[in-house]
Amino acid sequence: METFFAEFIRWLPKVGLSHFLIVSAILFALGIYGISTRRNAIMVLMGVELVLNAANINFVAFSRYGGVNFDGQVAAIFVIILAAAEAAVALAIVLNIYQRFQTVNVDEISTMKE
């Protein structure tokens, strides 16, 4: 068992910039999929959050490995600020839509007003 773990750990590649980029690409693709397929508006918002997190991982990874020193981390902070503002406004819009239409399914809301 110990030898198996040792072999497994030796088999793992050294982690570099590309591994972080690939994780963020997976998160980005999943977020896009969630945005475009979910019916519930709140699930769409969760997809948006996944996409923003993917972008943030890229910023921080490039600030670590890519020679973009602390500028990448400052950009990540601004992305987090905008995500907070976006979530608050979007939730307010969703609540308003629910009061008006009694549903938050994005395919049933096709008119601008009743």
Binding site: L30, T37, R39, V106
Partner: peptide, 14 residues
């Protein structure tokens, strides 16, 4: 519960 919409085009896009 929540359903899904147009899964096939989304899969293509993704």
């Amino acid at each position: 519960k929540t359903g899904t919409l147009h899964t096939i085009p989304a899969l293509l896009l993704v």
